[in-house]
């Protein structure tokens, strides 16, 4: 029952997707930013963020999702995550060795701004995993489209 030959699924799926996709993205960001206090971290949060874009693509078709996050921008984000993680590791040489937790004041434990470099590493890994898995999914889907 497609209305005007538009891509994607039916109206019910689209309405529910409009409601839930923002919440999924927000939950992923929460998981990443509280990775040093509670279960979660960069890996799980990155996959959740990638899943929110995958959800958008499955419901609305590839054009809407690629307008939000294009393929080249995803590649840029992934490279940025890799460079950010490596540069955080290299900054440890300021204090002596690779991967040094170089903040002298690490902040109060059990609070959001604590634990030195660990939140920044979480953000870098989240960018890398999320953009990389989204790029994998988009490339597999585009291959499928060209088969038709």
């Amino acid at each position: 029952m497609k209305a005007k030959n538009e891509p994607g699924m039916t109206l019910i799926v689209k309405t529910i997707t409009r409601l839930t996709v923002g919440l999924i993205l927000l939950y992923g960001i929460y998981i990443v930013s509280h990775g040093h206090l509670s279960p979660g971290g960069g890996f799980a949060g990155g996959v959740i963020i990638a899943l929110s874009f995958v959800h958008l693509m499955l419901a609305f078709g590839k054009d809407v999702a690629l307008k939000k996050l294009s393929m080249s921008f995803a590649g840029l984000l992934e490279s940025m995550g890799a460079v950010m993680f490596l540069s955080i590791a290299l900054l440890g040489f300021m204090g002596g060795y690779f991967f040094l937790n170089f903040f002298s004041k690490k902040g109060l434990p059990f609070h959001l701004f604590s634990a030195g470099i660990i939140p920044f590493c979480n953000i870098a890994i989240c960018l890398k995993v999320g953009a990389g898995l989204f790029a994998i999914f988009v490339s597999l889907v585009l291959l499928y489209k060209t088969d038709e």
């Binding site: 890996f43 996959v47 995993v129 990389g132 898995l133 994998i136 999914f137 597999l140």
Partner: peptide, 11 residues
């Protein structure tokens, strides 16, 4: 780390 690597290798 092994779980996420497993997903990438499966893809």
């Amino acid at each position: 780390t092994a779980i996420v690597i497993g997903l990438a290798v499966t893809a």
